[in-house]
Write a protein that binds this DNA or RNA. Structure first.
Lengths: 212, 212
DNA sequence: AATACTGTTGATCACATGATCAATAAACCG
DNA sequence: CGGTTTATTGATCATGTGATCAACAGTATT
């Protein structure tokens, strides 16, 4: 892959290969851009990004026609495969106890979204009104929360049943952990799974779904 | 484009005078700046703001030495008195049933924060790392959630008691309604009080605190 | 080694942006 | 009215910013 990354006749400690293959360079730019825009926002300046990468600003425009195109690539990288349809299948798999399904989902999902870059870029793009956000949240609604509501309705024995709004409330309470951590930079529990578990159990208990 | 010039000989209805008293003008600028920065973010350009107000960009700098000073004034206007200490008193007033106290608080609080300008400026400033945000959230912790936790502990008869993290979860689930509405611009219930009530009742039920 | 190819640079353009200041005109006052 | 004050403007400065391009230098090919 990298031919002369470290083993170079160098006079300095860090000697990056001056010249990369386009695919490599492009990916490098995207990766760095994700971290960069996550930190400073989508109004971050191309010169600052280039400086951080260690290339010239003009090189950015050899790989992306405009800054918007670069941001699109950032979106793509960050949003891609963030919502797998496999989750839907596991949520409706009634061979597994409902509580386990919910906990399994939020355990996976939280490790995926409680991440600095994702959390912040999602918030920045949301504030900017990006269509991608509504698409994502609609996806969340259709692929996760709606099936989940159906499962709870089936599993709930009594007449007190949750609404979709209740599910958004459950979801929001959990997501808010990540917001506190990465947007507001507040001290948060190292392992959010405990809080998630308690939250889910309170929710299920309210509708008399079996919890241990 | 100039809609305000024509008025001074005209004694008709309240036409904005071209020339305002400094206090008035200053307040007008702040008010418009709040709405403006809430919409486009703190990187909004002074020329766009001036155009929206209907004044010249240079006039802004007669009232605020720098753009940062203007943003500070925006913060002040938006954050000021957002957390009243009166709420603490009402939360610990044990002559009122606990459930009523909680619902009363979140009913008031939600009408205060489920507002476009507040929600978005809070999020923008949070992303920008403003110290004000952490101060505000610390205030929320000390003045609201901590007393509230104490009240619930007292009122809860059994050994299953909430933690502070549980309270943040309750809080986050409610706040998330406003985030969905104003940050992500998703369709939300017209009256959030119903969802709030259900959320609070689920919470209290989990700790066997009396609910109707 | 010589040559062609192309990833990369440094200079530069055109315009945007925060900030400044002398000139202007609306309000105030005698 | 006439004169003073000052809120407001229009022009302007210095720098920032996205984008462009000819020239350069590392790599591969012959």
């Amino acid at each position: 892959m990298n031919k002369q990354n470290v083993a170079d006749a160098d006079s300095g400690p860090k000697m990056k290969p001056r010249r990369l293959h386009p695919e490599e360079r492009r990916q490098q730019i995207i990766d760095e851009a994700v971290a960069f825009f996550a930190e400073v926002g989508l109004d971050g300046k191309t010169r600052d990004l280039a400086k951080k990468i260690g290339i010239t600003q003009s090189l950015l425009f050899k790989y992306f026609a405009t800054k918007d195109a670069l941001i699109e690539a950032v979106y793509e990288q960050v949003y891609l495969n963030r919502l797998s349809s496999e989750w839907t299948h596991r949520i409706v798999d009634r061979s597994v106890p409902l509580r386990d399904r919910i906990l399994a989902f939020y355990s996976d999902y939280s490790t995926l979204i409680f991440e600095y870059n994702w959390m912040r870029i999602f918030m920045f793009s949301g504030l900017a009104g990006a269509e991608l956000n509504r698409r994502y949240l609609d996806h969340m609604h259709q692929m996760i929360l709606r099936p989940l509501l159906e499962e709870i309705l089936v599993a709930s024995p009594n007449t007190v049943t949750p609404t979709m709004e209740d599910l958004w409330n459950l979801h929001g309470g959990i997501v808010y952990i990540g917001i506190r951590q990465h947007i507001y930079r507040m001290p948060c529990p190292d392992d959010p799974n405990e809080a998630i578990e308690r939250s889910v159990d309170r929710f299920l208990k309210a509708f008399s779904v079996a919890t241990p």
